[in-house]
Amino acid sequence: MTAVGLLALPVALRPAMSASSPAVALAFDGEALIAAGATLSRSDDGGRTRISLSGPDGILALATHPERPGRVVAGLASGGVAVSEDGGRAWESQVVGYGKGAVDAVTFAARQPDMMYAAIRGDGLWKSEDAGRNWSLAMDRPWLDDAERDLRSLASVDLATGMGGIWIYAGTDTGITRVPDCFCRWQDVQPGNAMDALVAGDAPPPEAPLPSGEPVRALAGAHTASGMLYAALPSGVWSSRDAGVVWSRLTSGDASAVAVNPSDPKYLVAALDGGLKQSRDCGTTWSALATS
Results as ranks from 00 to 15, higher is better:
residue 239 S to F: 11
residue 234 P to C: 09
residue 219 L to G: 03
residue 224 T to W: 00
residue 250 L to Y: 01
residue 213 G to C: 12
residue 219 L to H: 11
residue 210 L to F: 06
residue 225 A to W: 00
residue 241 R to F: 03
residue 209 P to E: 08
residue 216 V to K: 00
residue 246 V to G: 01
residue 246 V to D: 04
residue 236 G to C: 12
residue 243 A to C: 07
residue 228 M to A: 13
residue 200 A to V: 02
residue 206 P to D: 10
residue 217 R to A: 15
residue 232 A to G: 14
residue 242 D to E: 08
residue 206 P to Q: 11
residue 230 Y to M: 15
residue 226 S to T: 15
residue 216 V to C: 02
residue 230 Y to A: 13
residue 254 D to M: 10
residue 204 P to M: 03
residue 242 D to L: 05
residue 222 A to C: 07
residue 251 T to I: 15
residue 249 R to D: 00
residue 207 E to H: 03
residue 230 Y to R: 13
residue 240 S to G: 09
residue 233 L to I: 13
residue 208 A to T: 09
residue 207 E to P: 00
residue 234 P to G: 06
residue 236 G to H: 14
residue 209 P to S: 10
residue 251 T to C: 07
residue 220 A to H: 04
residue 203 A to M: 01
residue 218 A to T: 14
residue 215 P to E: 05
residue 224 T to Q: 15
residue 204 P to A: 06
residue 239 S to A: 12
residue 230 Y to V: 14
residue 245 V to A: 07
residue 209 P to C: 15
residue 254 D to W: 07
residue 228 M to W: 05
residue 210 L to G: 03
residue 224 T to V: 14
residue 254 D to C: 07
residue 249 R to T: 01
residue 239 S to K: 15
residue 234 P to L: 10
residue 202 D to Q: 13
residue 203 A to K: 01
residue 237 V to H: 04
residue 204 P to T: 05
residue 245 V to G: 00
residue 216 V to N: 00
residue 233 L to C: 13
residue 248 S to M: 06
residue 238 W to M: 05
residue 225 A to K: 13
residue 213 G to I: 12
residue 232 A to N: 13
residue 220 A to D: 02
residue 212 S to C: 00
residue 240 S to P: 04
residue 240 S to T: 09
residue 231 A to S: 14
residue 198 L to I: 11
residue 203 A to R: 03
